[in-house]
Amino acid sequence: MSVRHRILDGCDLETFIVCKDVEEGKTLGLRLMAELGFEDADVVFCEMGGPGVRIRLRGYVYRPSADYQWYDLEV
């Protein structure tokens, strides 16, 4: 069981991605989240500046009312 299941709700990833515009930044950001295994991912904030975007990505591990597994399994 992955440590990710101990995350209370969502996991934010904040970084700066080198890209040509906001759209590319968002696409790359979501690809990054997919690579990291976050299936329920979204771009919370993305702003272009100079060489790329300041981006905050979010992967929801549990949305409200989900089947939480914080305690059930050893990680």
């Binding site: 209370l8 969502g10 934010d12 979204d42 919370v44 904030f45 979010r58 929801y60 949305r63």
Partner: peptide
């Protein structure tokens, strides 16, 4: 800090 984010529920952080 999620006040203006409408894409999902507010998170603990």
């Amino acid at each position: 800090s999620d006040e203006a984010y409408a894409g999902g529920p507010i998170t603990a952080p």
